[in-house]
Design a protein around this nucleic acid. Structure first.
Lengths: 184, 184
DNA sequence: GTTCCCATGTAACCCGTTACATGATTTT
DNA sequence: AAAATCATGTAACGGGTTACATGGGAAC
């Protein structure tokens, strides 16, 4: 198989197209509301992926005229694309997460910092986490009707929510530990 | 400041060099044991970063002869490098995490899958998570003496540990929910 | 009737990865 | 003595980002 040059981003896009044909721009908008919180897709990236996928015959496109706004190129999944997508989905390999957590670099090097500076840093992070937790909660609330499709979207938001809660618990632990270190 | 082209990886490397001068290869080994679990650094990347950092005057290098093994180029932080590092550390911006969680793409598209296939996928992920949790626990155990430096390393491992626990809790939730869906 | 925004996309760039190179040293 | 490993590194590639382009509507 020469087509094994596809990335998770490729499959995310195939998956979105499986639900509904769309232009690159439209995929960008949908991605923002659906997969962005666990797999960010920028629009330029989507465009280049679509070109690659079309070259591989996994999607096809037609120019669609529009009034008032520029014409768009609408992509749809081909039969081969659906096959490729399902083959990937049925592979139970969960894939690798490469953690990239810049905050922890600063924490790791915390000995170079004043204690108060570490606290400020953590406080800022806590605010970020709380904001993201709220976003996840909103998605969970939005997907709590019984629609079959919403069920799975809900599970991904729940994942984010649980992780944000874990981060908050960690922050509590760390701050408590830093207090100890201070007084003594 | 023209030097504002540095990435978190740059600062991670500066931070490691602040502890001890080292060659690119040695930084690679240390990074593997210290920052890899929250900020992976591959050796080729380290080499190119070092070249860039030297060009900016943030590190300096000297060729060191060795017996039996190839000569190495040893890098050390310059005064300017230490300044730059501390400026970054003292900025309380925790930075952006770009979540990249390929598993959740499959979960999100779960309606295209057989229920059992979803279960298999989650089971595989659970094993991964348990393995990673064990690694974090090992680091926590390894850093539980009172060394000041170990304290901060420990906090980063604790972060990973809490997140893995969150993932396991999520898996329990999801699997329970999927059982419901099955019987009815 | 300028100024701002919206819908659509392209171009340029670079961070980080995977693949390759090489000579000494230890292992079998 | 062949094979594997170690210590050091270079080369090539590409996924994904930030910056730019553009023309029609909407807003003030």
């Amino acid at each position: 198989m020469s087509r094994e040059r596809l990335t998770p981003s490729s499959y995310a896009i195939l998956g979105l197209l499986a639900r509904r044909p769309a232009s690159g721009y439209e995929i960008g908008a949908v991605a923002q509301e659906t997969v962005h919180h666990f797999w960010p897709l920028t629009r330029p990236h989507i465009y280049s992926e679509l070109a690659k996928l079309e070259e591989l015959g996994l999607v096809s496109s037609t120019e669609v005229e529009q009034r008032g706004v520029p014409d768009k190129r609408e992509y749809r999944l081909t039969d081969g694309g659906a096959e490729e997508l399902d083959a990937w989905l049925n592979d139970p390999d969960p894939g690798v997460q490469r953690p990239r957590h810049p905050l922890l670099i600063k924490v790791f090097l915390g000995e170079r910092l004043e204690r108060d500076q570490v606290r400020t840093l953590l406080e800022r992070y806590r605010r970020d986490v709380e904001a993201r937790r709220a976003e996840f909660e909103a998605i969970v609330a939005d997907t709590s009707d019984g629609r079959p499709r919403a069920t799975f979207a809900r599970l991904t938001a729940l994942f984010g929510l649980r992780r944000m809660e874990a981060d908050l618990a960690w922050l509590d632990e760390v701050e408590a530990r830093l207090e100890e270190g201070t007084g003594a």
